[in-house]
Structure formats: structure tokens, C-alpha cells
């Protein structure tokens, strides 16, 4: 799939922002007044900034309000509702902490749950697509939640929790990559089911068009897979191992900032791979799918 910069930024940054808001909602760290203001400002810049970035990939952002209408079937619409509800509830909760020195307990739990619901909604947009076998799996929402929670722990300064969560995140991510490599083949969608052709080795003889088209640029992205192995290693180091080492060192604000920056950079690399490595089954029609086979298939 085409790794659009706006969507990578959106899902990564807003995931982190909602992760931080989850921890703030649960009272980690237990901050009030000006300190709370700074924490909430960072969380809102990430969460709302990410949402704004997502609007850049729309063809008609001026109609974005219509996206609230189809929550019955569409995870994208549900994401719109959960994100706005979260930002509103957490704004009221945050205002209580910052200006009134008061923690509204009911709002804190509701807000934290809404944060997690938003992250799940985002992930389900991808997980619900049967056309992209690598995403169409229950681990996709778990992985998105793991990024949000581990990143949230790191940003909220919960050092011990962050160390364990970051290591767990790395293990989960490594397993998801490994398992994800086999999902296209497991999906059962092949050139044979795509074309219904039988009786020999089938190969794409001639594509329908000589130039590129929307399908090829959007869904048959093949550039990034060349360096996937190296990028996976780089992502794990940046997202987890380096921040953990920095957290284990004697505390300093410089190390903490570096840990956060490293984590964000790693999360961006991992999210880039999430898109670039995902193969859409439409590529089978063009004989361009690696997950299931090369460009030809012997079909009996």
C-alpha cells in the first residue's frame, strides 16, 4: 500500500497523543496546574495535530463533517466520533486539573477509555480490510494499542512501566512482522481465485494500460520492500531498545527527551513499513504480488 506521509504522521502522532491522554486520564503522572497544562498541551498537539494531518489526504476536506454520519458500518466514521468525543471529554477533564485543581473521577475513566477506543477505531480501519491480508488480523488493533500505551507511558514519564511496555512492544511488533509475512498466503487469495483461470501456468501477459494508474500507485506499492529487513531492525532499535537504555541511565531531561525522539522516529519507521509492506490482493491481477508467489502461478 502507498505509504502516504499524512497518514503515517496522523496514525503515529495521534496514537502517541491518545496514549499520553490515557495515562493523564488515569492520573499518571498526578499533575495539576501549570504542569498539567504542559502535559495536556503536548498530548493535544500530538492527537489533534495528527487528526489535522489526516485531513490532508482527503480529496475534499471541506466535506469532512459528512464523515460523522456512517458510524453504523464504517470504522473511519467511528474514529471521527471517538476522537472528537475523546478530545472534548479530556479537555473538560484537563481544564479541571489546570484551572480548578480538581480531578473529576468520572471523566478521568471515561476519557481514558475513549482514548483507547479511538486508537482501536483507527486500527480497525485497516484490520477490517479483507483485501489487505497483512492487516486483516486481530493483532492489528493490539499492535496499535501497544504503540499508544507504550508511547504514552514514555511520554508521561512513567519510567519503570515504560521500560517493560517498550520491551513488550518490541516483542509484539517482531512477532507481528513475522506472522504478517505469511498472511497473504494464508488468506487463500491467489491468481487462480482472482482470475478463475485453470489448466496451466498463468502469468500476466500484458497489463491493461502502458502507464501508471491509481490502482498501481495507491495499492501496488513495491518500492519499499527492498530494505524491509534493515528497516525492521532500525525501527526496533529506535522504538524500544535505545529508549530503554536511555531510561535505564541516571535520569536527566536530555536523556528523557532523546528517548522520546528516538521512540517517535522508530514508530514512524514502523508505521511506514506497516503501509509499504502491506500487499493488496488487486496486485494479483497485475502479476505483482510477492506475499503469495511470484508473477506466475501454476494452476490445475
Amino acid at each position: 500500500m502507498h505509504p502516504a506521509r499524512s497518514i503515517i504522521l496522523f496514525t503515529t502522532l495521534s496514537g502517541l497523543g491518545f496514549g499520553l491522554l490515557t495515562f493523564l486520564g488515569l492520573g499518571y503522572p498526578d499533575v495539576k496546574g501549570m504542569t498539567a497544562f504542559v502535559f495536556f498541551a503536548i498530548a493535544y498537539m500530538l492527537a489533534a495535530g495528527g487528526l489535522a494531518a489526516s485531513a490532508f489526504h482527503l480529496g475534499h476536506p471541506e466535506r469532512a463533517l459528512k464523515a460523522f454520519s456512517q458510524w453504523r458500518t464504517s470504522w473511519l466514521s467511528r474514529e471521527a466520533w471517538t476522537s472528537v468525543a475523546t478530545l472534548v471529554v479530556m479537555a473538560v477533564y484537563g481544564a479541571g486539573l489546570v484551572f480548578l485543581d480538581t480531578r473529576v473521577a468520572a471523566l478521568s475513566i471515561v476519557g481514558a477509555l475513549l482514548c483507547l477506543a479511538t486508537v482501536v477505531s483507527t486500527s480497525m480501519i485497516y484490520a477490517s480490510l479483507g483485501s489487505v491480508p497483512r492487516w486483516n488480523d486481530r493483532t492489528t488493533p493490539i499492535l496499535f494499542l501497544a504503540y499508544a500505551i507504550a508511547g504514552g507511558a514514555l511520554l508521561s514519564g512513567e519510567v519503570t512501566m515504560a521500560i517493560f511496555l517498550l520491551l513488550a512492544l518490541a516483542a509484539l511488533q517482531a512477532w507481528v512482522w513475522r506472522d504478517g509475512d505469511a498472511r497473504f498466503a494464508r488468506s487463500g487469495t491467489t491468481m487462480a481465485t482472482a482470475t478463475g483461470l485453470t489448466g496451466g501456468t498463468v502469468r500476466s501477459f500484458e497489463p491493461p494500460h502502458t502507464g501508471k494508474n491509481y490502482l498501481l500507485t495507491e495499492m501496488v506499492y513495491v518500492v519499499g520492500r527492498k530494505h524491509a529487513r534493515k528497516l525492521r531492525a532500525i525501527a526496533l532499535v529506535l522504538v524500544s531498545f535505545l529508549p530503554v537504555i536511555l531510561l535505564l541511565l541516571p535520569f536527566s531531561h536530555v536523556f528523557a527527551t532523546l528517548a522520546v525522539l528516538s521512540h517517535i522516529a522508530g514508530a514512524l519507521v514502523a508505521r511506514w513499513l506497516f503501509f509499504a509492506e502491506a500487499e493488496h490482493v488487486v496486485g494479483l491481477y497485475y502479476g505483482k504480488r510477492h506475499g503469495s508467489s511470484t508473477s506466475t502461478q501454476t494452476i490445475r
Binding site: L58, L215, E218, M219, V282
Partner: peptide, 16 residues
């Protein structure tokens, strides 16, 4: 006139 051009439907279609 209701389409926001998000492209998600094209992703969801296995047939292109």
C-alpha cells in the same frame, strides 16, 4: 457530492 475522496472504498475493494 458526498464523497470526501478518502480512498478507503478503493482500498476495501479486492478487485480494483
Amino acid at each position: 457530492s458526498d464523497c470526501i475522496g478518502c480512498g478507503l472504498c478503493a482500498w476495501a475493494c479486492p478487485y480494483g
